[in-house]
Design a protein around this nucleic acid. Structure first.
Lengths: 259, 259
DNA sequence: AAAACTGGTTAATTTAATTTACCATGGCTA
DNA sequence: TAGCCATGGTAAATTAAATTAACCAGTTTT
């Protein structure tokens, strides 16, 4: 039995603090705990985890040390910033002004969101679908109220929720970085507002179609609907720009006739 | 954050004894610890597992309680019998005498071993392949020495090793029950001896072919070779039975001419 | 401004595990 | 056949890990 006697491995029951760290890290990676999310109080959290407060604090201290948590006395701990930026602030400024950058950006988004929509159609949970339904309702509310800022925010939340429903942590993270550009208004909001103006109803229909394909677990349909939507957004922006150019020419002609 | 605050799960670091039980049970299910295998002494095992002897004993006592371990003072603990019998002793006796039962048995074995050979071709480890090579050599040795008992045992070991290399615990267990019938001589050894007589060289070649397909990771080839082998065994047994029947008729004719 | 919430610290206590010593049984060898 | 050596069996003392409880300091809310 000497031969078989060497097949056992040392038992390694992790410490309480290690187990806590492991669970919180897993929740960060899977997107359940996003950057900025505040944790419950230490007392509440130790109760939920069924561990003592000193041991919980040991774990939280380690997470703070690893730059995953921000801890301040008197305030609840919160998840640290997780998203780096693919662009420096200076490049973001230039990128936002560069005319064709917007279309490159839309092209990239189109492919990523088609991918995400396909995955979401396969993997979305009941909770994911309810979130999508709520955001769609909020978009419609803010569109009717002509609250463009709220409508724009809801639009980003909608696309972000689809990516979340893909349950692919790498895609979630990389797209969060992309959506941050949109949230910050790297591209002039005027471009988006022109797109929305007059075609909001149609865009809403497309959003509903994407969601319906996800609800129906139609992966190909969801990917195609997402691709179609982003194509439509791009062509609307192009049409708006061309309309602007024609109006500028018309104003110039009118001015020349007066003199 | 009240909503998100309910997403943490209680930490459950298992006790030392629970971890030991878990590891040993996993080794039983995966076939590493077979029935009859003796464990290292408690002192050696506690050293390998890096746990205290009292805690190890606590785990072993629970395994004994679950009928997975046999513990006797002064002797090393051993894995308890794990294989139940699909047949009662009375039915085994009848089954062994029933003429067509042998062919039903071979038919069942043929399909199971083709399945196992295919899996083994995909999954066999280096250790699995070495074991097969060793058993093939032992079979050849005992065939040349005309040690039929040893040859028969090696044959069962060969087929059992293929099943083990499939790494499918359910298949391993169910086939262990089947091979036990063979080991016990449920079917008259005379049938098998007649098969071996005169065709041993050919059967050996088939064994080598099966093994070679497994070494080559040829799943389809391995399954086909296994199926062909069991077909050949069956047809050899049938031929032997027909030869016996003709000899009995010839003896009767000879006796009638004398009177 | 006081109360209530939060994080921050530490000593006392409890629990789980380890260490150590010894007993009982069985097999092997001189 | 007795002694030795292996094994499993038992239990008390010690150590390590975790919990409990109490209190302090900062921030937010009423």
């Amino acid at each position: 039995m000497d031969k078989a006697g060497k097949v056992f491995e040392p038992i390694a029951t992790g410490s309480v603090a290690e187990s806590v760290i492991h669970q919180i890290e897993a929740m960060i990676v899977s997107g359940i705990l996003r950057e900025g999310t505040k944790l419950p109080s230490e007392r509440a959290l130790s109760e939920q985890l069924n561990v003592s407060r000193p041991k919980l604090r040991e774990a939280l201290k380690q997470l703070e040390k690893d730059d995953l948590l921000v801890v301040k006395q008197g305030e609840r701990s919160e998840i640290a910033p997780l998203i780096g930026s693919a662009m420096t602030p200076a490049f973001q400024e230039l990128y936002g002004r560069h005319p064709s950058a917007l279309f490159d950006f839309l092209e990239y988004r189109r492919e990523q969101e088609a991918f995400a929509a396909g995955l979401a159609a396969k993997r979305a949970t009941k909770a994911d679908k309810e979130i999508l339904t709520e955001i769609l309702a909020e978009m419609e509310r803010s569109r009717i109220a002509k609250d463009f800022k709220a409508e724009h925010l809801a639009d980003v939340q909608f696309h972000s929720a689809i990516v979340a429903a893909s349950n692919n942590s790498t895609l979630i993270h990389m797209m969060a970085s992309i959506y941050q550009l949109t949230k910050r208004g790297v591209f002039s909001n005027r471009l988006f507002l022109r797109t929305m103006d007059g075609v909001g109803q149609k865009l809403h229909g497309q959003h509903c179609n994407i969601a319906q394909c996800i609800f129906d677990s139609d992966a190909e349909g969801a990917a195609e609907a997402a691709r179609y939507h982003l194509d439509y957004v791009e062509s609307s922006i192009r049409a708006g720009q061309e309309r602007d150019a024609r109006e500028r020419l018309g104003q110039k002609r009118k001015f020349m006739r007066k003199s």
